[in-house]
Write a protein that binds this DNA or RNA. Structure first.
Lengths: 148, 148
DNA sequence: CTAAAAGCTCCAGTCACTGGAGCTTCAAGC
DNA sequence: GCTTGAAGCTCCAGTGACTGGAGCTTTTAG
């Protein structure tokens, strides 16, 4: 077990994130402000650590911070309905599915670019030609290449 | 055919991007600076348009700007070797594959969260429980949820 | 008591744009 | 030729989710 009154660096190591990240979470009000020593340094207990684990886990699963905030609030209301947490997760699942579909069409396109016979000079290069001319695409690929 | 001397808005519409994006590409030196009217407005020709199409297409395929820059340089050197463009594309394919693999494990985790039986109160909620306790995960999911 | 490690705050930078304020130029209609 | 409204211009700030650094103070082990 980790000490009941950890400095920030120990907490950071114990959950596998950066010290700055923890301070950032406090800044934006995701993690409640820690108590301070007489000299002004933050000290954390087990409750903070559990909350941080929750946040990091949700982030690893790709939930954007607003969703994490929502889930955290829900987690604190142990008597409220589960349906809302399900909705958040389902919404995220939808976005994950959309991203997978898009990446798969990109993969197909890239594989086509790479496996197609081509000369060894740029002027005959399939990769370059495909990029220069959209009509050579077999796949539909539009919009949102990023985001969580 | 689009006019041989387009203002920036016409060019933007013709390739499907924002006016500011074109100015941004000029700022960072990705697109060569356009000629100007006496009054200081940019005017574009077909060469610019082709370059912009190339850039947008590469971006839609998820290539990060440094890679696009590299590909553009290659495209301009029509006699150089194709192998280098292939390497850029292959590197990108690898990263796409990694992202797909990761997203698929996230999907599995999210589906598990959602399909598992659970009570209708937060205290019995599988979604919340999974986030709070990493040990409930069946999937390995680490690090880089973003980036190309 | 000293010295190094770790903490603190504040600011800037990342990536690839996007939006807005406040101003100027262009082009069509009269 | 003049008006007027759309579209252009520059510059600055903001996005998301951190990350890194400067310059300082506090803690803690020896």
């Amino acid at each position: 077990m980790v000490n009941v009154s950890m400095p920030i660096g120990v907490l950071a190591r114990s959950v596998g994130c950066k010290v700055q990240t923890i301070r950032y979470y406090e800044d934006i009000g995701l993690l409640p402000a820690a108590g301070r020593t007489a000299g002004g340094q933050r000290r954390y207990g087990e409750t903070h650590r559990q909350k941080l684990v929750f946040i990091r886990h949700a982030r690893e699963l790709g939930f954007p911070l607003p969703a994490v905030r929502e889930l955290l609030t829900l987690a604190d209301q142990r008597e409220s309905e589960c349906a809302q947490a399900d909705r958040v997760a389902r919404r995220h699942l939808d976005s994950v599915n959309r991203r997978i579909a898009m990446l798969e069409s990109l993969r197909a396109e890239l594989e086509l670019m790479l496996t197609h016979g081509h000369g060894n000079r740029i002027r005959d290069c399939r990769v370059i030609a495909t990029l220069a001319d959209h009509r050579l695409c077999t796949q539909v690929h539009h919009a949102e290449a990023s985001g969580s």
